[in-house]
Amino acid sequence: MYNFYDSIQKTIDTQGFRCPEPIMMIRQAIRNIEDGKILFILSDDPSTTRDIPNFCHFMGHILIFKKTTDLPYQYLIKKGLA
């Protein structure tokens, strides 16, 4: 089984920030990683449960994992091809 954690190129912790800051931080971070690499995100903002999937859908990235059952929320986004 493939371990996505091996492909994490960057981790960002958005805990303590509220909408729209987490998405702004994610957008900046994903610009600075290579296509196909993984961004790992920690968050405690409930709005990220809808904002991150929407961000991925509209920006062409792949949300490969999310854990939103307890804090901190965790997300793995695979950067789409430019």
Rank of each mutant, 00 (worst) to 15 (best):
F4P: 14
F4Y: 15
Y5L: 15
D6A: 10
D6V: 01
D6W: 02
S7E: 13
S7P: 00
I8D: 03
I8W: 01
I8Y: 06
Q9M: 12
T11D: 02
T14S: 13
Q15V: 06
Q15L: 04
G16D: 10
G16K: 07
G16W: 08
G16A: 06
F17Y: 15
F17C: 08
R18Y: 14
C19H: 15
C19Q: 12
P20N: 13
E21V: 15
E21G: 00
E21C: 02
I23Y: 07
I23L: 15
I26F: 09
I26N: 04
I26D: 03
I26L: 11
I30K: 02
N32E: 15
N32T: 08
N32H: 10
I33H: 02
G36L: 04
G36M: 03
G36K: 06
L39G: 09
F40L: 13
I41W: 06
D44Y: 00
D44L: 02
D45G: 09
S47K: 13
T48D: 14
P53F: 06
N54R: 14
F55N: 05
C56W: 03
F58M: 07
F58I: 09
F58L: 13
M59A: 13
M59L: 08
I62Q: 13
L63D: 04
L63P: 09
L63N: 08
T69A: 12
T69C: 03
L71D: 01
P72E: 06
L76Y: 09
L76W: 01
G80F: 06
L81V: 10
A82L: 09
